[in-house]
Amino acid sequence: MNDKKNLSYLDSVHRDGRVWGIILCVLLLAFPLVVGLVFNAIPEWSALAKGLFATLPMYWAVGIIEIFTYVPMLGAGGTYLSFVTGNISNLKLPCAVDAMERAEVKPSSEEGEIISTIAIAVSSIVTTFIIILGVILIIPITPVLESPVLKPAFDMILPALFGGLAVVFISKNAKLSIAPIILMLVLFICVPALNASTVGIMVPVGVLFTVGVARFMYKKGML
């Protein structure tokens, strides 16, 4: 175990993240196979092909884009956890970003790496337990969760999340935020194809555009 001491914290996070990631990947892909074996059932091939054709191109494209967009924001530990536990844009990412902002650390520093990992790990654990509790109590809570009175609250989670987060970042970077916000408002209002299911594609567009604008303003001495 001598080499363990020579590894930096970040390197060891990468090493362990890979091991956990590969184990979980194998387990997850094995699950449909095992279910098929247990119930002695094979998929309906033509329906499987149709279903995959409707699902894969879009979601694999978005998935690849998401990796490149979110890894720099989440840090290493945060990435290995988030891409296993999911619900990134509606939960893990805002949670990590808020935590790093309050602790005044950057995701590329080791402190940022630690804070982001703690926030995302806690969030994943709490989510897992709430869902377990929900699954156990599913019969009594179903009428509450499906009540039409509460539906709007659950539908509006993204606007309620990003309103608060936007205030923090816009107030600190007022000059830089003008151009990307105008661009995104124009795009989303004028292009009908942009909606809840395509916002994932626009995130990297926004990031690249804002970084470009920032580079320009920085070089001109405006920031």
Partner: peptide, 9 residues
């Protein structure tokens, strides 16, 4: 900011 602006849009 780029990420947040996309969600604001």
């Amino acid at each position: 900011l780029g990420m947040i602006s996309a969600f604001l849009g």
